[in-house]
């Protein structure tokens, strides 16, 4: 379980995250939404230990994060970043096996074990990449690469997943597939996930909790029904919105209405 208490993070001489408290409970997906520059990605990177909070505490399974070594954190927290840097040719399987690094008994020169490969092959199957496993990463499409990033995070077998805009490069069907994978991890393995996203409707559909941020602060947090209210969203995003019930799920559905658009109807 990952907990943050009264977290403050300064970044580039300004306070990027202010007094944020959150708990990622087993089996739950939490979505962070908010306008650009709200501190969403900064919060995510702080929770992973990449940025140090100026005050507040982060507890991983009850232990302060800063007292744990890198590999033991990486066995418990996996991050799905927005895009991989690919300047050297690596195959999809090699890339996904990178997720097993934290489990290696010999981190330097050691070799992947049979179990590492089994895990990698299983996640390749889950992410529908099995057939591409021998292909080079830089030959894949943007969406396939994003799935490979997801596969690598799943290969860590970490019970906590932090996802930064995981659906940014994905088409409609793969967006849903990817979040369904996260959902399945949470349901079957009691994992917890934190998803930074701009897609409010996707968040409404998959998240158990939504954390709405603006200017580094938590504006609201709670279930999608509690957070996704027209008045709240209007204040945070400074745009008129229509919130109605999703025709299939029954959950909230958010449609922005721009002034120009409204005038024309």
């Amino acid at each position: 379980m990952l907990e943050a208490r009264d977290l403050n993070v300064s970044y580039d001489h300004r306070t990027a995250v202010e007094n944020v408290t959150l708990t990622l409970a087993a089996g739950e997906i939490t979505a962070i939404i908010g306008p650009n520059g709200a501190g969403k990605s900064t919060l995510l990177r702080t929770l992973n230990g990449q940025l140090r909070p100026s005050s507040g505490a982060i507890l991983l399974d009850g232990q302060p994060l800063e007292r744990l070594n890198r590999r033991s954190i990486s066995r418990r927290i996996a991050v799905v970043a927005q895009e991989a840097e690919l300047r050297f040719p690596v195959t999809v399987l090699e890339f996904v096996l990178g997720g097993r690094f934290a489990w290696a008994t010999n981190a330097g020169w050691g070799w992947e074990t049979e179990r590492d490969v089994q895990v990698a092959q299983a996640v390749l199957q889950e992410t529908e990449l099995s057939e591409l496993s021998a292909r080079l990463m830089n030959e894949l499409s943007g969406g396939e690469r994003q799935r490979a990033l997801m596969a690598r995070a799943l290969a860590t077998e970490a019970p906590i997943l932090l996802l930064d805009e995981p659906t940014a490069n994905l088409d409609l069907s793969h967006q849903a597939t990817l979040l369904a994978l996260v959902r399945a991890r949470c349901d079957q393995h009691r994992a917890s996930a934190l998803v930074v996203t701009h897609d409010i409707n996707l968040a409404a559909q998959f998240a158990d909790n939504i954390l709405l941020m603006k200017d580094g602060k938590t504006v609201h947090s709670g279930s999608p029904e509690e957070v996704l209210k027209p008045q709240i969203l209007r204040d945070v995003f400074e745009v008129e919105v229509l919130v109605d019930a999703h025709p299939v799920t029954g959950g909230p559905r958010v449609t922005p209405i721009h002034d120009t658009y409204r005038r024309s109807i």
């Binding site: 590999r71 990486s74 690596v90 860590t156």
Partner: peptide
């Protein structure tokens, strides 16, 4: 093995341990 991950980005390498 660390260098293999560093080739794919410092942030990724850090995330992976």
């Amino acid at each position: 093995r660390s260098l293999n991950l560093l080739m794919l980005g410092e942030r990724d390498a850090f995330d992976l341990g």
